[in-house]
């Protein structure tokens, strides 16, 4: 494709990224660096502030929570803190999967792929996309949650009981390295599309059209990085290497989820998450 076509593709994917995902990296970095001019996020750093943070969110999101309670996926006040937190993460993750699906459907050619292959690409790609995007909300000390309203410290997450304390550390380690690449939202849009269009996912029926689509997006990404980061040598190659790290993180994450499903008798795993992690790795 000509450069102009590749730039048009980059613009299209950036536009649909902005439509699909409510909290951009630009907004998140502004919140994290205190440059929004808004009120700073509420900080959760111990069990007391966790309870206060939950009340804050409850006050702001009553209609949503009531809906979730009807569905049986909201936390119960008497549940253990770790379980309440995990259930909240799940509710957000399920919503995030819907956002990623909408973004995937906006990738030119995606909806024309074999429907089974669309399912496979999402099943395998969605956690890699979510973890890449989550890095935008993190710094070395903690992570924004609840659409940027709350900052939860890394130390607090490490203080949770096993195995919950083990869930986030690998994501923090990844985020510190990934954020060093200094991608912006327009770069991220292309990178996420590349992840989704991975032709080596197990069980794909018709690989060729997926690889062709990915090839075009890869060319658009390479051009984008050259134009947007002219000083950053080998950024394209460095970014592609991150895809290997992502696969390992997701494999470990999914194994942990599968373990939680077996060992945490009080834990309720959302049917969508069950669908995704079943027979995944």
């Amino acid at each position: 494709p000509e450069s102009a076509d590749l730039r048009a593709l980059a613009k299209h994917l950036y536009d649909s990224y902005l439509k699909s995902f409510p909290l951009t990296k630009a907004k998140a970095r502004a919140i994290l660096s205190g440059k929004t001019g808004d009120i700073a996020p509420f900080v959760i750093h111990d069990m007391k502030s966790l309870t206060a943070g939950e009340q804050l969110i409850h006050c702001k999101q009553v209609p949503l929570l009531e809906h979730r309670q009807e569905q049986g996926f909201s936390h119960e006040p008497n549940d253990e803190a770790e379980l309440r937190f995990f259930q909240r993460c799940q509710v957000r993750s399920v919503e995030a999967v819907r956002e990623v699906t909408e973004f995937a459907k906006s990738i030119p050619g995606f909806v024309n792929l074999d429907l089974n292959d669309q399912v496979t690409l999402l099943k395998y790609g969605v956690h890699e996309v979510l973890i890449s995007m989550w890095a935008s909300l993190m710094n070395k000390d903690g992570t924004l949650i609840s659409y940027g309203q709350i900052f939860m410290t890394r130390e607090f997450l490490k203080s949770l009981r096993k195995p919950f304390c083990e869930m986030m550390e690998p994501k923090f380690d990844f985020s510190v390295k990934f954020n060093a690449l200094e991608l912006d939202d327009s770069d991220m849009a292309l990178f996420l599309a590349v992840i989704i269009l991975s032709g080596d996912r197990p069980g794909l029926v018709n690989v060729k059209p997926i690889e062709d689509l990915q090839d075009t997006v890869l060319q658009a990404l390479e051009l984008q990085l050259k134009l947007n980061h002219p000083e950053s040598l080998q950024l394209f190659a460095k970014l592609l290497q991150k895809m290997t790290d992502l696969r390992q993180i997701v494999t470990d994450h999914v194994r942990l989820m599968q373990l939680l499903k077996k060992t945490e008798v009080d834990m309720c795993l959302h049917p969508l998450m069950q669908e995704i992690i079943k027979d995944l790795y």
Partner: peptide, 21 residues
């Protein structure tokens, strides 16, 4: 595959909320 992934399939087809499907 679509049978085993009804919610993902529905999201792909019509974009319903995951809790509605």
């Amino acid at each position: 595959l679509q049978e085993k992934h009804k919610i993902l399939h529905k999201l792909l087809q019509n974009g319903n909320s995951p809790d509605e499907v």
